[in-house]
């Protein structure tokens, strides 16, 4: 991709080249958010036996655009007692954390924002910036309920980073790389080489490792849902308890930025899970339908499937309580994942 852009004369070696490269994920993110907002509404509506958007265009496809236009026009209300600077800053910090994560997601064999060797590590780290923004939003709003939401969110995201990191570790141990391009390339052989099915290991090792990789993959999905604050882990914004939590006091575009960051975050956790466990941009049929363009299609398809699972879970399950949430993370998932890491390590060494 970089070479392709370099061949365009105006871009050449200029800073513009890098701006264009950096803007690509942003374009993707905006389009993806529009589509996913619509998908979420439609999926939830069909789960709930209703129709959702039907008026704006066929099956309401233009509704997300209408929503954005509405939010653009809305007044940006700031509570009189709020800390105005932090209140204004926090949505962009949340957004920055999410956008930063897109830099290390391998969208295709030809395009990754930044092909760094510590890709996975970077993703885990940069997505934690979101916590700072959320905490800031809750504090700056000067609203007790918002503060509750923010503190819950911080506790939750920090707790679920650990199982997420451990689950990622399982995949990293098998692929022996933290670079997501390398991890994806290792899974190019087809569906049987996906790390969720044991990766490209010799058959006996693969069969031994498989139960643990499947557990790790499912745990990563669960931790991912918790990290993006969605039901059954939506305690930070539990509308029936905290009235939307940390973003209660936001309106207009600042709210929209939070909203979009949440949706973009869903794709980030989905893309991480897809890259590490489901082959990333690699085709499930080996050589068939592979290549840079197909690679993009595959990772988006895999990511969207996981996003769909997140939506499905959200509209099916009730919400956990704070103590049950912590119990799940610390007493169930972390010990189970330590076991996985230990077992996979043992199998790989032997």
């Amino acid at each position: 991709m970089e070479e392709l852009l370099r061949s365009i004369p105006i871009l050449g070696e200029s800073i513009l080249l890098y701006l264009v490269l950096a803007a690509l994920p942003l374009v993707f993110m905006l389009l993806y958010a529009l589509v996913t907002v619509w998908v979420e509404m439609k999926v939830s509506a069909h789960i709930q036996d209703r129709l959702a958007y039907m008026r704006t265009g066929p099956h309401g496809v233009a509704q997300p655009i209408a929503d954005v236009l509405k939010l653009l026009q809305k007044e940006n209300t700031v509570p009189a007692t709020a800390d105005k600077f932090l209140h204004a800053l926090s949505p962009y910090l949340v957004f920055a954390g999410t956008y930063g994560a897109f830099a290390a997601i391998p969208f295709s064999s030809a395009y990754i924002g930044s092909n760094i060797d510590l890709g996975v590590f970077y993703l885990v780290a940069v997505s934690s910036i979101v916590v700072v923004g959320i905490l800031m939003a809750g504090w700056a709003s000067n609203n007790k309920w918002s503060l509750f939401g923010a503190v819950r969110s911080a506790a939750q995201i920090i707790s679920y980073e650990i199982p997420a990191a451990l689950a990622i570790l399982v995949a990293v141990m098998i692929s022996e790389s933290l670079n997501l391009q390398v991890v994806s390339r290792l899974q190019q052989g087809g569906i049987q080489d996906w790390i969720v099915f044991g990766g490209a290991l010799p058959l006996t090792q693969k069969l031994l490792v498989m139960p643990f990789t499947i557990i790790a993959f499912l745990m990563l999905l669960i931790a991912g849902i918790a990290e993006v604050n969605r039901t059954p882990f939506d305690l930070p914004e539990a509308e029936s308890e905290l009235v939307q939590g940390y973003n209660t006091e936001y309106s207009g575009m600042r709210f929209a930025v939070f909203y979009m960051a949440e949706y973009a975050n869903m794709f980030v956790v989905a893309a991480i899970a897809a890259s590490l466990f489901l082959g990333g941009w690699a085709s499930p049929f080996g050589e068939f339908l592979s290549g840079p363009i197909w690679g993009f299609v595959w990772i988006v398809a895999k990511g969207m499937f996981i996003v769909f699972v997140q939506i499905w879970v959200r509209w099916t399950l009730p919400r956990l309580r704070v103590d049950q949430l912590m119990y799940t993370a610390w007493k169930v998932m972390i010990p189970a994942l330590f076991l996985c890491v230990f077992a996979v390590g043992l199998i790989l060494v032997l």
Partner: peptide, 16 residues
Amino acid sequence: FGIDMGAFTPFLWMFR
């Protein structure tokens, strides 16, 4: 009560 528990879908089924 389902909504209070965070489950939105039963509510709409029941209203249907």
